[in-house]
């Protein structure tokens, strides 16, 4: 009877089995599974969190900026910069005409879904939706030591004095193509997005470095 009333799990992370092995506590949001916490979690100063099941969407094409402007979205002025939206979500400009919207981590964050709904409704000219929730995994590295940790994995200088809040580096992290976005909305944080097929590889590499700096993998609760 209870199985009939529970919604089916339609989306889980590429790292689901890893989370399961660690005994993670999951939460169901809609039909999506998210990691809330791990049993041994101790509010570490440096943390790595898997956000792969959180909403995100991309738009590309020469009409993209005009359409987003019509929707009163705050626009980054140059490529490789991100603009924070009033609801806390982040719009990253990856090239002249390509943008990526990351949600604000709150369970009720509607902006990526809302934009996708508007896009389907309006079919703006020369603006194409990109299914970034399917193509890319999303992790977040949080803590004051994050830049020092990343220095051994990434050739781009990510130190806060060189890589300002809202900066984007599309580069190689541990030899894997990765989008790195600095987001200081809640202390020093780096969003890391990689191809979904490389997620487990990158997660294990990052976690090894995080552990060396005294950090831990954490669930969503640690970030909120």
């Amino acid at each position: 009877m209870s199985s009939e009333s529970s919604p089916p799990v339609l989306r889980r992370s590429q790292l689901y089995h890893w989370h399961q092995q660690q005994g993670a506590a999951f939460a169901m949001t809609g039909s999506t599974l998210r990691v809330l916490r791990y049993p041994d979690e101790q509010a570490p100063a440096l943390s790595l969190t898997d956000l792969s099941t959180h909403p995100r969407v991309g738009f590309k094409g020469v009409g993209t900026r005009q359409w987003l402007r019509q929707l009163a979205i705050d626009m980054p002025q140059t490529p490789n910069c991100a603009a924070r939206q009033p609801d806390g979500s982040l719009l990253a400009r990856l090239s002249e005409h390509e943008h990526l919207l990351l949600d604000n981590l709150a369970a009720d964050a509607p902006l990526p879904a809302e934009l996708l709904r508007r896009w389907e409704l309006e079919q703006p000219s020369q603006c194409y939706a990109l299914p970034r929730a399917d193509s890319h995994s999303w992790m977040i590295l949080a803590g004051a030591d994050a830049a020092a940790m990343m220095s051994s994995l990434c050739a781009v200088d990510l130190r806060p004095q060189q890589f300002a809040d809202g900066s984007i580096a599309q580069t190689s992290v541990a030899r894997t193509n990765t989008i790195v976005i600095r987001d200081d909305n809640h202390g020093l944080r780096y969003h890391l997005l990689c191809d979904a097929s490389t997620a487990l590889y990158l997660w294990n590499i990052l976690l090894e470095s995080v552990t060396a700096f005294g950090g831990q993998a954490t669930g969503l609760e640690h970030l909120l």
Partner: peptide
């Protein structure tokens, strides 16, 4: 490592190209 300057992304290791 040789550095190449990408017009979009700035200076990067040649292994990224």
């Amino acid at each position: 490592m040789k550095i190449l300057n990408c017009p979009l992304n700035g200076p990067r290791n040649i292994s990224e190209f």
